Each structure stands twice: as structure tokens, then as C-alpha cells.
Computed example of a mutant assay.
Amino acid sequence: MKSLMLALAAPLLAVHIASGQCPTDAAPDAPRVTITNGKLTAVVHLPDPQRGYYRSNRFDWSGSIACATLNGHTFWGQWFSHYDPLGNDAITGPAEEFRSPDGAEPGYNEAAPGGLFVKLGVGVLRRLDEKPYSFGGKYPIVDSGTWTSTSNRNSVTSTQVVHSTIGFDYRYTKTVEIDRKANIIRLHHRLTNLGKRPIDSALYNHVFLQLDGKGPGPGTSVTLAFAPTVETPFPDSVSVEDRTIRFLGPPPNGRAVGSYLTGYTPGTPNAIEVIDTTTGFRVRQKTDAPIVKFYFWGHSRATCPEAYIAIHVAPGKTQRWTTEFALEAPAAASPAPR
């Protein structure tokens, strides 16, 4: 692996956010930065092949948020019970994964066992056997490329450059930015094809949204820009009414709620709204690229509407896209007078 280079204009964050609202991190020595607009604050994990919070082979290493705070409340956080930096999904949201439409990754189908393929946002991986690609597979990372990160008060940018021996080379840059005036977090992406072969994939955001450390339950609703048709029926604790998925109770004990959804068209806005009526939380999510596939996943600790977008970058070309999260949380209660 090539070494990580960091040029940080903001100091590394200690275990807690300044407000003291975020829980103790499972990996306090992992590199991270804190960004803020003075009201909304976010702690962003930094990619690092040796010390990074997440070092597995499924999700994009950049841009995951350890925790964000607003009005004394928290968004995101550790949703899983056991932390392992090499675990497939031991990552905080909003976690993004590049996953090709045909279920493979660039170079996988043509590689023999022991051969190489590319996972965008991770690096060059090794195929293990004759089985089809599995997003849950443990494929060895041969080269994670070179990661560089820079930051200022309200944004942090991480860039990965990967060169392979199979014609797939790229430069991938993601900036996590807090709007200076509004309580909005934006993820700006730029993928440049430096190789000789076209890069075809898709990307979705496995949001892993937590509100004050909690997942979906009574009062949680997820409203889409289309009326969804559910491929796998939800349990009785989840209803679908027009464009809204509504939780009448928590997900079944020990199981997640999940299904692919259809009903969108090429012109459907890529927009999602999550509301918790019991607390006053609201998250508006949107991406400036059309939906090509949609999966909904609700876990007892996380709410995850997953809209896929298409990735196609010809040699020498660049694709750009942005996802934003507009966050609302009720004002913290004033302390009782003495």
C-alpha cells in the first residue's frame, strides 16, 4: 500500500465533539477532523490505510461522519454493536458504496481467482474464487492507492489516486462541507478516469441515520418523491401510504426491514425526507443525479433509504455529483431556574 499524506488546516478531534453530545468513539486514535458553521458541527473520519476508522473493502473510505450535533442533538453515530476496522459494515453514515449494476466491480468478471479488480473508493482488490462478486465478501486489498486530505473550518476534502495494472486508473475526490449559513451538510464528488478503460458502476448512500442515537420507530416516516411499490412486503409494523413509509413500531426484534422499491421514473427528483414526529427531527436529503435503483433498509439502530445513481466515466473524462442533507432538530430545553 502507498502511504497516506495528510495536510490538515484544522486540528484532529479528540474523543468528544466540543458540545459533549456525541458518545465516546470506538476508535479514538483514528484520524478525523471537526468542521462547523458555528451552530452545526460534524466530526469526519479521514481515510488512512493504517489507522483509519474504516479499512475494509466494501464502502468508500472517505466522508463518513462519526457524529454531527445541532441544538444539543446528534445525527449519525455508531449503529452497530461490534466495532472492527476491517469489518464489512463497521462504518458510520452517510456511508457510500460503489456497486456495479451487473453485480460485479471493474475487472472482476474477467479476473481469474487470484487476479485483480478495482473497488472505487477502496482500491485494487484480489479475486478469491470462481464465485460471483459479493458485496459482503472479504477480498484482500492489494493497493489502496494514495489518499490525501485537507481541511478548513467548514469543510474537509479527501482525494484518492489509484493506478492498477488492468487499465482502471482514477482520481476520486470527495468534499464534506457544512454550509456557512444554513444547517446543511453537502457531499461534493468528482471522479476522473485516468485509465484506458471506461468506468461503469453505480453509487448509493447507506445513510445509517441515527437521531440522538436511535433508529426508526413509532413516529418515524420516510417520504419519497414517488409512490413506491414494495418488492418484498414489509412487516405489519411498517406501512406504505402514497409516498410515505411509516413506522408504526420498531423493526422486528433482531431483524431489519428491507426491500427494493420501484415507482420512480427518469424524471423523478432524487429527494428523501425523514421525520421523527415524536422529537421534531427532520432530515431532507437530495442528490443532483437521477435514481436508477432504490432500496430501503430499516434497522433497529439506523434508517437507510438508499437511492442509487449511475456512474459512467469514459477515459479522460470526469463525473461530478452532489448529495446534501438539510438537518433540523428542536432547540435544546433551557435549564430549569434555581
Score class of each variant (00 low, 15 high):
V257H: 00
T277L: 04
I275P: 00
A289M: 08
T268E: 05
G254R: 06
F294T: 04
I275Y: 00
V283L: 08
R255V: 02
E273W: 01
T287C: 15
I275D: 04
T277N: 03
F294L: 12
L261I: 10
N270W: 01
T277G: 07
V274W: 09
F294S: 04
R284H: 13
T268Q: 03
T262W: 07
S259G: 13
V292M: 10
D276K: 03
T278E: 15
G280N: 02
A271N: 09
V274Q: 03
Y264E: 02
D276G: 02
A289S: 13
P269A: 06
N270F: 01
A289H: 15
T268D: 05
T277P: 02
L261F: 09
T265L: 08
D288F: 14
G254P: 11
T278G: 15
D276H: 05
Q285F: 08
I272W: 02
Y260V: 06
V292H: 06
L261R: 13
A256N: 12
T278H: 05
R284Q: 07
T278D: 13
D276A: 00
V292F: 14
Q285R: 13
K286G: 05
K286M: 11
V274T: 09
T265M: 05
L261P: 13
T262K: 13
T287H: 04
S259Y: 00
G280L: 01
R255G: 08
K286A: 13
R282D: 09
T265S: 14
T277D: 05
L261G: 06
I275H: 02
D288G: 15
N270H: 09
R255H: 14
P266E: 06
G254A: 07
V257L: 08
L261W: 09
A271D: 07
I272N: 10
T268C: 01
K293Q: 15
T278Q: 08
P266S: 04
F294M: 14
T265I: 04
L261C: 08
T287N: 07
T279I: 03
A256K: 13
K286S: 15
E273L: 00
T279D: 12
T265F: 00
R282A: 11
T279N: 01
K293A: 14
V283W: 10
A289R: 15
F281C: 04
Y264Q: 09
G258A: 09
T277A: 03
I275T: 12
L261H: 11
R255E: 14
N270M: 01
I272P: 06
G258E: 10
N270C: 10
A256R: 15
G267Y: 00
F294C: 10
G280F: 00
Y264C: 05
V257M: 07
A271E: 13
A289Y: 10
T277F: 03
A256I: 06
I291Q: 03
G263Y: 10
V283F: 11
F281L: 11
Q285I: 15
F281E: 07
T268L: 06
A289F: 10
A256Q: 14
D276S: 04
T262D: 12
G254W: 08
S259V: 09
P290E: 12
V292G: 10
G267Q: 10
G263C: 11
G263D: 10
F294I: 03
G280A: 04
T278P: 00
Y260K: 12
T278V: 04
I272E: 11
